[in-house]
């Protein structure tokens, strides 16, 4: 390329294109930065909204917010989240405990064991589970599964009733228990967890898999040595996404779970009914009026928000703790 006199060869003629390129850069930089700031801003605004509305209600609370099980929001207010917190956490953790091994197993099967003609349609089918609306899961759980599930629960209770988690609860019948909610939630979070695990496990590098085989690993040993450890961080992330969804699931829980009778005794049993944060807020939404009473529900929402936040932070810590040992 020959430049005009006084201009460095190769730098001159394309100046306009370069300027255009810089403009594109600036635009893209601006768009990306805006998006990034917006995300932070939204989180901050939500927090501010929750805190501003929750604090006045909390100040008027006659009971201990963290340890009380009653929920009375007419003045004088006396409300606490213990029952809600337990129901929310127990059903979600149960859902995670069921969904995690299944999703890892399904993902492993699809990525490392199934022939291609099977793995692709099967993956689509599982993704379809995610497209089923929550309300359908709720109806299905409450009206189809629950009656059939009741005798099974009775059986479990007879066998394992000595464990507090499986103790009998006389007030709740018909199978619409936390245990059933946990199972339905597990099915609901299964697709997203499976999809993530599938992505992660499919990306396990072939080089390490061959390395494992070359030192005489069987297929399963290869998976254990070179695939699962590689996918660990992704599997945890997927589990946390699933847990987050389970914690916040509203309509299905509302449909399935039997409400607790007034003044029922505390029990650790999964055969209990109750309400989660989300289902409580949704089922009482019709009666909400601006003011202190609503503040109590917003305070409950704030706890749910913090709960998901903590869950994500813990997941981060677990993943970062092993950073040295990843590529």
């Amino acid at each position: 390329m020959v430049g005009r006199a006084g201009e460095p060869v190769g730098l001159g003629p394309d100046r306009r294109a370069a300027a255009r390129g810089r403009r594109g850069d600036r635009l893209f930089h601006g768009a990306a930065a805006t998006a990034g700031v917006l995300v932070v801003l939204i989180v901050v605004l939500i927090t501010v909204f929750l805190v501003v509305h929750a604090v006045p209600a909390l100040l008027h609370d006659q009971a201990n917010f963290l340890t009380s099980r009653s929920w009375d929001v007419s003045v004088p207010m006396s409300f606490g989240i213990l029952q809600l917190l337990w129901t929310t956490v127990a059903t979600s953790v149960l859902a995670l405990a069921i969904a995690l091994p299944f999703s890892v197993g399904i993902a492993l099967f699809l990525t490392h064991y199934a022939p291609p003609w099977l793995s692709r349609p099967a993956a689509v089918l599982i993704d379809l589970l995610a497209a089923v609306p929550s309300i359908v899961y709720g109806l299905w759980g409450a009206y189809i599964v629950a009656p059939k599930f009741a005798p099974i629960q009775d059986g479990i209770q007879h066998l394992l009733g000595w464990i507090p988690l499986f103790g009998g609860v006389s007030a709740i019948s018909g199978g619409t228990t936390m245990l059933l909610v946990g199972i339905v939630l597990a099915i609901m979070v299964l697709p997203i967890m499976t999809a993530i695990n599938r992505e992660v496990l499919a990306k396990a590098p072939a080089a390490q898999q061959e390395a494992a085989l070359a030192i005489g690993a069987t297929k399963w040993e290869m998976v254990r040595t070179a695939v699962l450890p590689y996918g660990r961080a992704g599997i945890i992330s997927g589990a946390m996404l699933g847990l987050g969804r389970a914690l916040g699931e509203t309509i299905a829980v509302m449909f399935i779970l039997s409400a607790l009778p007034q003044g029922s005794a505390w029990t650790w049993s999964l055969f209990n009914g109750g309400e989660t944060f989300a289902s409580k807020i949704a089922s009482d939404a019709a009666e909400l009026t601006p003011g202190l009473g609503t503040g109590a529900y917003i305070a409950a929402g704030l706890v749910l928000f913090l709960l998901t936040f903590v869950v994500n932070a813990v997941a981060r810590l677990i993943i970062d703790g092993k950073k040295d040992f990843s590529e």
Partner: peptide
């Protein structure tokens, strides 16, 4: 045994555990 074109130690394992991976199996 086999050694490959690109070094492929197991990323999640220490030096010690890499060497011993086969024995552990």
């Amino acid at each position: 045994g086999m050694v490959f074109q690109r070094p492929n130690p197991f990323p999640t394992m220490s030096i010690r555990n890499n060497v011993l991976a086969g024995l552990r199996l």
